[in-house]
Amino acid sequence: MIVIIQTLLATIIGSLLVGIGVNGFLVPHHLIDGGILGIALILHYFYEFQTGITMVALSLPICIFSAMHQRGYFFTNIQGLLASSFFIDLLAPLRNQFLISQFASALIGGAIIGTGVGLMLRYNTSTGGTDLLAKIISRVTPINLALAIIILDGLIILAGFAVLEVDNFLYSCMAICTVGLVTALIEGN
């Protein structure tokens, strides 16, 4: 019972941190994170799609894949996906609250998101997208979790290079490196 409560608290707190990091620091400067969230942010910037709902739609195939390979993760990750998507959309009003430089936004936003994701992964839950895929990769290969996140997120950032301005691209790279390193520190593997 204690483990269930800890996982639920990690899911709520981690999702809240992800929502704050995305809305307070990445979105105001049109920065992207990697993974599914990065794709959802690109779609938000160009088509004004709601980021959280888009994240759910894009993450469901990965959640189904994870259910086939790591059955125990499926339900906690669906909860993490829904909670983080909810907080991302709920906290959209934060987008104009922290008016700081792109550099500071990339570092602070990356650290806040990394803390949220790391906390969730520590309790075997996640935002459902590529964080979950990175966790599976780090468990079945010798690749460190931070490196797996940076590689997967880097692929999304490279895809975003075609649609981002150069400075947004570089600060987005800084943000995903920060997310990956902080995630690994918090997660503990």
Rank of each mutant, 00 (worst) to 15 (best):
I62Y: 07
L58S: 13
L9N: 14
M68K: 14
I62R: 01
F86E: 11
L107W: 00
L58E: 13
F87D: 02
S66P: 01
T54V: 10
Q79E: 13
L43N: 06
G80H: 00
P61A: 08
G24C: 03
I53M: 09
L9P: 02
Q79M: 14
H29W: 12
L9D: 09
G24F: 01
V56Q: 06
H29F: 11
I39D: 00
G80L: 01
P28I: 06
S59H: 05
G72I: 10
Y47P: 09
N23I: 07
I53S: 02
A83E: 03
G21R: 06
G52Q: 05
T54E: 00
I53E: 11
L94R: 04
R71K: 15
T51F: 00
I12F: 09
H30L: 09
S66Y: 03
I36P: 02
T54A: 08
G35C: 07
L82E: 07
L8D: 01
L8F: 06
F46Y: 15
I20H: 08
Q70D: 15
A67M: 07
S15H: 02
H44R: 02
N96V: 07
F86H: 05
F74S: 09
L58F: 15
I4Y: 15
H44V: 06
L82D: 11
F98E: 09
I20L: 15
F65W: 14
L94K: 12
G34L: 11
M55S: 08
G21Y: 02
L60T: 05
A106G: 09
L81C: 13
Y45R: 13
L107A: 09
L9E: 04
V56W: 10
I88R: 00
L60Q: 08
Q102Y: 08
S85V: 05
I53H: 05
Q102A: 10
E48M: 07
I4Q: 15
F86Y: 14
F74G: 02
L16K: 04
L107F: 04
I4R: 15
Q97K: 12
G35E: 01
A10Y: 01
N23D: 11
I20W: 05
I32T: 14
I100E: 04
A40T: 08
I88M: 10
A106W: 00
S105F: 01
V56G: 05
F25C: 07
A40V: 07
A57Q: 07
I39M: 12
V22Y: 04
A67C: 09
Q102N: 15
S59E: 05
S59G: 13
F98V: 06
L99R: 08
D33N: 13
P28Q: 11
F98I: 11
L16C: 14
V22E: 04
F75R: 12
I39H: 04
F75Q: 12
G38I: 10
A106N: 03
T11S: 10
I78Y: 07
M68L: 14
P93F: 05
A104V: 10
H44P: 04
I5D: 03
Q70E: 13
R71N: 14
I100S: 01
I39S: 06
S59L: 09
L43I: 13
D89P: 03
Y45I: 11
S59C: 08
H69G: 08
P28H: 08
P61K: 13
M55N: 14
G80I: 03
L91N: 05
I13K: 02
A104K: 13
L26R: 02
Y73M: 07
Q97F: 15
E48V: 07
I4C: 06
G21N: 04
I42D: 10
I42K: 06
L17F: 10
D89G: 07
